[in-house]
Every structure is written in structure tokens, then in C-alpha cells.
Write a protein that binds this DNA or RNA. Structure first.
Length: 586
RNA sequence: GCCCCGGUAGCUCAGUCGGAUAGAGCAACGGCCUUCUAAGCCGUGGGUCAGGGGUUCGAAUCCUCUCCGGGGCGCCA
């Protein structure tokens, strides 16, 4: 109904323009909002106040003219001018009844739109290094990214969901080496595990499968491996130099082929685990994009060359630098190190170049907030390459801190004792985890209360909303038990019987749903939908307690059943977009 | 030092492309189950929107300074 009112206002504006009350060249955006206070009607527009300067008239006078020029509509009961010049719209009952009919007719499609007109959008999210299982921090990015993608799809964009797999680079070499050292341990070698290695139990598991596959065939003498390697930190050395030395030795002692096999075994095992974890979390991808493939296809080289040809690189201290300061970055960045290796940043330039080459209208990256400093250099690179950096939207997700029993849950990634996403899902369930993660806007630091997420009470917003859905289902079960039936057509014909204030409030809220989905999608703010559903569930529970649905009067009963069926539908649709289930009974 | 995010009720947070009297949940207190699920509902109390200055018809919202909290500033990824 909002589109209808906007249309009416637009038509009033153009009448004023033909009459000469308003300059024809004034740019006009129709500003129309839900009124917060019902005394101000259902919708309010500040159009007259915005246009008064251009029109050279007082706001209230201009409002008067606009109202006079409004075309008639049977959905509009009256229009008032109030305060400094607000135009307040009061809708007729038939408007609410119409939107109720729409919900029951469109069912799961209610709230969807073609606003995006099928434009292609890419959403890249999580993209955690495959060096270990996902932890709770990744969970927020996963839940948020999935919702942003689903919302955009709901409003008509063609969405491509992608995970960038960092399957190249030093961190992966550290993983491969960690696996190999654990393997040597399983073979009976005695060694001191490096301070900087990956210590999680999953590394032992991978080492064990390597051992099952090869027995002791890959065994070397541990002393020989550690010989000539710089001391580790506990021995007064440098842990980075120590691990780099171990990587080098592992590589040469194993040989390239076997090293690669160890490396890939670790990669595949962990990636499989991440895939299963995300799938279990209801998060699906269209593509898992390999970083290594960029190097192998020459895309990284091509990106570096293109930067060079455009005159944006220079050599210094044996390394090749990108002059990103020319494009707003705070310092220049290395793309090729003095040892000849390209940096992670070089891959990322190639990756983003690749994204834009694929022709997306919009590219959305969802990163942890700790990567914020990385944004200017990626945009700088795109600009330097002649691409439109404005097409790239980087959404930064702040940290989530877990609380249990009022105490902060400690997470330590290094020791391998972090709380994994899988543990969280097992503890609180997928529904609560998905909902809690998107309940807050992404720029907000989040306190994740495990006890609350687990509690089966009204304190828990997830159960509160789901319970409203289950209650409607229960009413329909009761209907059958009482050997009554629901006639939706009869209900639709008697919607005027819905005259209680609770019923009005519910109908108004149900009609808001498409606007909420649109705002949540365009603003990348799933929390708006979460809050809306909480409100809607509240309206329903209030109504439920105040009135009986299964009444004798068949006309009233059918009308009320239409209303609660529509409520159930909207809750199911909304929860669906958040990745939360809508149970029939609880 | 520079950069990003935050500061709104006792707690956790909405509201922020300027709009009418700043909202919700929890916690506190008082009520409601012979009637469709009490995992629910109703009521009461609770505010210097961190602080100063500015912009204007109008500021929690925009600009600026200060204070406080979190994060980031590698030839790591």
C-alpha cells in the first residue's frame, strides 16, 4: 500500500507542476513514512516541508495544494495536514483487508519483490583460512552474510554466494608443516612442536590419516629436520624464523610431490569440515573460489602487470610496490616480496579484478572488523586498474563475545582451545545461533548470551517468535478436533467483523512486512527483520490472550482465522529469510 | 600518533539519509490459567540520548572538539 500512496503523491506533485505552483524542474523524491503515532494517521509525508522553498510557499499552504491535487482512492479514508506541514494519510479498512488477502494468496511469495530487477550481485562471506575449524567469530559472518544474500534475493537480485578459499600462502604452509610434525610424532620421532604451529586436535587427526595412508614411509629423522633451523621462541629465538625454517626443511626433505600431498590432505580435510559445518548451519554457497587458481591461471601476474603498465608500481629494497597512496591509501603496499613471492594482497587484487570482470552490478565483501584497514588498499587497486571501486561494498562485522553464566567465555585461537561454531550450534541449536547472530546490526559489538540463547522461555526472542507460529498451528489443530472447518473465502467476505483494536494493530503490522524486507535488504540490515518479527509475535500473543478465535459465529471465526493464518504466513516467511525454522508445534 | 566501530533506562539493545510526546526486551514490583499451548498476557516505576560548542523552523540523528570502551595500523594471511 505504500507504493500506491507514493504514486498518488507523485501525481499530486506533477499536477502542481503543470499548474505552475511548483517549478517543473524541481527534483522530487517522494518521502513517505509509517506514522509512529496513530493519531498522525497510518502514513505521513514531509513533502510539503521539503518542497516549500522551491515552491516559494509556506509549508502548510503547499500541503493544502498537494492534498487538493491528490487523486481519490477507496483505500484512503482521509488526509489531514498537521504540525508544521505534515500530510497525514488515514487508510480505510479496505486497505488493510486487501493486504490480508494478498498474504493468503501469495503465501510464501508475500514480501518478495522484483525491486532488484534481476541485477547480478555477488556476496562473498566467511572466507576463513582453511587452517582449522570455524569458530564462533566466523559464525557471525556466516549468519549475517547468508541473511544479506537471502534478503537481496528476496527483493529480486540475482545473488551469487561465494567463499574465497585461501589455499595458498604461508599460513597453509604452517598447517602442512604442523601436520607433518604430528605425523613424525606418530611414527615415534621425538620433537618439540613449534610455538607458532597449529596445535589443535584436528591436526593430529589429519596426521593420523596421513599415517594410515603411508605408514612410516614419509618418516625422516626429526633431529635432521630441526638441524640448522633457527631457535624457537621458548629457546630465545624468533618463532617466525623458526617456523619458516621448518617449512623449508619439510619441503626439501619430503620432496615437492609429497609435500604437496600433505598440504592438500590438510586443506581438503579442513575444507570438507568447513563445508559440512556451514551446510549444517543452513549456509549455502554457489562457488568456492580458490586463491591458488588465481596464481596458476596467471591472473595474479596479469594484475601486477596491468598495475605496472599503468605506471602505478615501482621497485624498492628488492620488492615491487604498488603506489596505493596515489589513490587514498595511507602507505604504499608490496605486491611482490624481495624473495620473488607475490603477497596475499596481490592475490586479492587479482581476485577483485576477477569479480568485476565477471560483470556483477554490485560486489559485496563481508569481513571481520579487524580487516578494516585493508579496505582502502583494495579500493585503491581497483581504481588504479581503471575499475569502478564504487561497485565494491565492504561490510565489516564486529566481534561477538560469548557469555556463559554472566562470565565472558575465553577464546584462545593459538592453543587450539577456541569455541568452534559447531560447538555453539550443538549448545544452543541452529535456530537460536542464526537468530542471535543477526539480532544486532553488524557494526555493533555483540554480547552473545549463551544461557539466554538456550533458554526455552519468553526471554528468548527466537522461541517467542516461533511460539507464535506454533500457537497458530495449534489453533488449526484444535479446529479439526472440534470438527469445525475454516472457509477462507467466507472469512475474506467478513473481514469487516475484525473490529477489535488488537486486530487492527495486527493487520497494520502484517502490511508492513514487505517494507521491512525491502529496507533490511537494501540496507544490509537483517536485524531490522528480526526486530519486526519480535514485534509481530508480540502483537499476536496479545491478541491471542485477549480473544478467542474458535467462536460459535462462523463468519467472525473465519475472519479471525484468515487473520491468524496470515500472521503465521508472515512469521514463517520472515524466519525463513533469517535461516530460522518455523515449527508447527513446540 | 593515525584509522574504523561503539557510548541511548540498572542490564542487553532498537531508533541515526534531521521531523511530531525517545522505544523494546530483560531485571524490579503488582496482577491473569474450569476457556484455542502460561514457552503467554496485562499493569507500574525507570532517561542530562557520554560531555561542550555549532548548523536551522526543528538535532539522539548532521558538523566540530573533548572524554570513555573495542579493534586495526607487517615484504603475515
Amino acid at each position: 500500500m505504500k507504493p500506491l500512496l507514493s504514486q498518488l503523491l507523485a501525481s499530486a506533485v506533477s499536477s502542481l507542476q503543470t499548474q505552475g505552483d511548483l517549478p517543473a524542474d524541481t527534483p522530487v523524491t517522494i518521502n513517505l513514512e509509517r506514522a509512529r503515532d496513530r493519531r498522525h494517521g497510518d502514513f505521513a509525508s514531509n513533502l510539503a516541508m521539503v518542497l516549500c522553498k522551491a515552491a516559494g510557499a509556506k509549508p502548510r499552504d503547499l500541503a493544502q495544494k498537494l492534498v487538493a491535487a491528490l487523486p481519490a482512492s477507496d483505500q484512503m479514508e482521509k488526509v489531514e495536514i498537521a504540525g508544521p506541514g505534515f500530510i497525514n494519510f488515514f487508510l480505510s479498512d479496505s486497505a488493510w483487508h486487501a493486504s490480508l488477502g494478498q498474504i493468503l494468496q501469495q503465501r510464501s511469495l508475500y514480501g518478495r519483490s522484483d525491486l532488484g530487477a534481476g541485477k547480478a550481485v555477488q556476496v562473498e562471506f566467511v572466507s576463513a583460512n582453511p587452517t582449522g575449524p570455524l569458530h564462533v567469530g566466523h559464525g557471525r559472518g556466516a549468519a549475517y552474510g547468508a541473511c544479506v544474500a537471502d534478503l537481496l534475493e528476496a527483493v529480486g537480485y540475482k545473488v551469487h554466494r561465494e567463499y574465497y578459499v585461501n589455499d595458498a600462502g604461508r599460513q597453509m604452509d604452517i598447517l602442512a608443516t604442523s601436520v607433518y610434525l604430528r605425523y613424525l610424532d606418530l611414527c615415534g620421532e621425538t620433537l618439540t612442536f613449534p610455538a607458532n604451529g597449529y596445535k589443535g586436535d584436528y591436526v593430529w587427526d589429519i596426521a593420523a590419516s596421513l599415517h594410515r595412508r603411508h605408514g612410516d614411509a614419509l618418516r625422516v629423522n626429526a633431529q635432521a629436520l630441526f638441524a640448522e633451523v633457527p631457535d624457537d621462541e621458548p629457546q630465545g629465538g624468533d618463532k617466525e624464523a623458526h617456523i619458516d625454517g621448518l617449512i623449508e626443511r619439510t619441503r626439501s626433505l619430503l620432496g615437492e610431490e609429497r609435500y604437496r600431498e600433505t598440504f592438500d590432505l590438510g586443506l581438503e580435510t579442513i575444507l570438507d569440515d568447513i563445508r559440512r559445518d556451514l551446510e549444517g548451519f543452513g549456509v549455502r554457497y554457489d562457488e568456492w573460489f580458490s586463491e591458488r587458481s588465481l596464481a596458476e591461471s596467471g591472473a595474479v601476474q596479469r594484475a601486477i602487470e596491468r598495475l605496472g603498465e599503468a605506471g602505478h608500481t615501482y621497485e624498492q629494497d628488492g620488492a615491487l610496490w604498488f603506489r596505493s597512496t596515489d589513490f587514498g591509501d595511507e602507505k604504499d603496499r608490496v605486491v611482490v616480496r624481495d624473495n620473488g613471492q607475490t603477497t596475499y594482497f596481490a592475490s586479492d587484487i587479482a581476485y577483485h579484478m576477477n569479480k568485476l570482470e565477471r560483470g556483477y552490478e554490485r560486489v559485496i565483501d563481508i569481513w571481520g572488523a579487524d580487516h578494516h584497514g585493508y579496505v582502502p588498499r583494495v579500493k585503491a587497486a581497483l581504481t588504479a586498474l581503471g575499475d569502478d571501486a564504487a561497485k565494491l561494498d565492504v561490510l565489516l562485522v564486529q566481534f561477538a563475545i560469548l557469555y556463559r553464566g554472566g562470565e565472558r567465555v575465553q577464546m584462545s585461537t593459538r592453543s587450539g582451545e577456541f569455541v568452534t561454531l559447531r560447538e555453539l550450534r550443538q549448545e544452543v541449536g541452529n535456530d537460536a545461533a542464526r537468530f542471535f547472530y543477526v539480532m544486532r546490526k553488524c557494526e555493533q559489538h555483540m554480547d552473545f548470551d549463551l544461557d539466554l540463547a538456550k533458554s526455552e522461555s519468553s526471554d528468548n526472542p527466537v522461541y517467542y517468535i516461533q511460539y507464535a507460529h506454533a500457537r497458530v498451528a495449534s489453533v488449526f489443530r484444535q479446529l479439526k478436533e472440534k470438527e469445525l472447518s475454516w472457509n477462507p473465502d467466507n472469512g475474506a467476505a467478513h473481514l469487516s467483523r475484525l473490529s477489535e483494536s488488537h486486530e487492527d494493530a495486527l493487520m497494520v503490522n502484517l502490511s508492513r512486512y514487505p517494507e521491512v524486507v525491502e529496507a533490511a535488504a537494501l540496507g544490509h540490515e537483517p536485524h531490522q527483520l528480526a526486530h519486526y518479527l519480535r514485534d509481530l509475535a508480540n502483537e499476536f500473543h496479545t491478541y491471542y490472550n485477549a480473544h478467542q478465535f474458535l467462536v460459535e459465529d462462523a463468519d467472525l471465526r473465519d475472519a479471525r482465522l484468515n487473520l491468524i493464518a496470515a500472521t503465521r504466513q508472515v512469521i514463517a516467511n520472515g524466519l525463513g529469510l533469517l535461516g530460522v525454522s518455523a515449527p508447527e508445534r513446540m
